[in-house]
């Protein structure tokens, strides 16, 4: 196992990412409360993009708007455009179900289904009506990609709830991989895990980057530095008239640049406050 500790230099990355998934002037509202405003951000294909910033600045909100999970929250509304491969995912002809299949999500708290390990993985392909020649192979492939196969191959029929927290989270990643998405969104996927489990997941992200576009929200600066190709820093701005604390994008760039040479004072304050 390789534990990547150095900040990724991003030397080999293009200056502007090829945005497979892209926000254009996105505002997200909960009722009349504007939680996030005017975010324009490309998420590079086969790159890991980290979203960082203080609590309550709307990182999770923005993340949920990227695969229409916000649709499930009463009163939540997205203005602006979120495009996936050039198409607005909020467009009239677009099916939210299909969006969520193509853009998967891993949550903060591991949330395996109360089913067997095997059924957890097979669930996604089954509900999506995917044509699968051999479900056993697909389960093995997903678990292998999520670096969990060796640990669970002898107990596929056992309940997923018997796994450790770290294993459960990797199972959730495997479950997401099994439906063959293009993008994986992760909202603080390691915040409930110990350092060893965290290192495993971070390693996994390095592997997965080759096949998937990954967006990760994290409060852990070192983690962002270790896993992300690019980093977006958000903060909450208080609106004078309404008093709302609304999230704004402060700075976006290659991770090395954000951490070593931030252009905005607020980024620098935040990073040095947490880092140094």
């Amino acid at each position: 196992m390789v534990i990547h500790t150095a900040v990724r230099t991003g030397a080999s990355l293009p200056d502007r990412p090829y945005g497979q998934l892209e926000c254009e002037h996105v505002d997200v509202y909960y009722g009349s409360f504007r939680a996030v405003t005017d975010v324009s951000l490309p998420f590079g294909i086969h790159e890991v993009t980290a979203l960082i910033g203080p609590s309550g600045c709307g990182k999770s909100t923005l993340l949920r708007s990227l695969n229409r999970m916000n649709d499930l929250i009463d009163g939540a509304r997205v203005d602006g455009r979120v495009t996936f491969m050039g198409e607005d995912i909020y467009g009239k002809r677009v099916d939210a179900i299909e969006v969520r299949r193509r853009i998967g999500m891993v949550f903060q708290k591991p949330n395996p289904f109360p089913k067997s390990i095997y059924d957890n993985i097979a669930y996604g392909p089954r509900v999506n009506g995917m044509r699968v020649d051999d479900m056993g192979d697909l389960v093995e492939e997903a678990l292998t990609k999520a670096a969990l196969w060796d640990e669970v191959k002898d107990k596929l029929k056992q309940s997923a709830l018997g796994l450790s927290g770290g294993q459960q989270q990797r199972l959730c990643i495997a479950r997401t991989i099994a439906v063959k998405p293009d993008v994986i969104l992760m909202d603080e996927p390691c915040s409930a895990l110990d350092p060893i489990a965290t290192a495993k997941i971070e390693d996994l992200m390095h592997e997965l980057r080759d096949e998937y576009t990954i967006v990760i929200v994290t409060h852990n600066m070192q983690q962002a530095a270790r896993v992300a190709d690019r980093t977006a820093f958000f903060t909450a701005q208080v609106d004078e008239t309404s008093g709302d604390r609304t999230g704004v994008l402060v700075e976006f760039g290659k991770t090395a640049q954000i951490f070593e040479n931030p252009q905005d004072q607020r980024t620098e304050d935040y990073i040095s406050g947490r880092f140094g």
Binding site: N67, L72, R100, F107, K109, Y123
Partner: peptide, 21 residues
């Protein structure tokens, strides 16, 4: 709630989520 969210995030419909999960 996380169970429902997990299911929906995999592209299951609300009905599938209810019936199967």
């Amino acid at each position: 709630l996380e169970i429902r969210q997990g299911s929906l995030a995999l592209g299951a419909t609300p009905l599938q989520t209810t019936l199967r999960n």
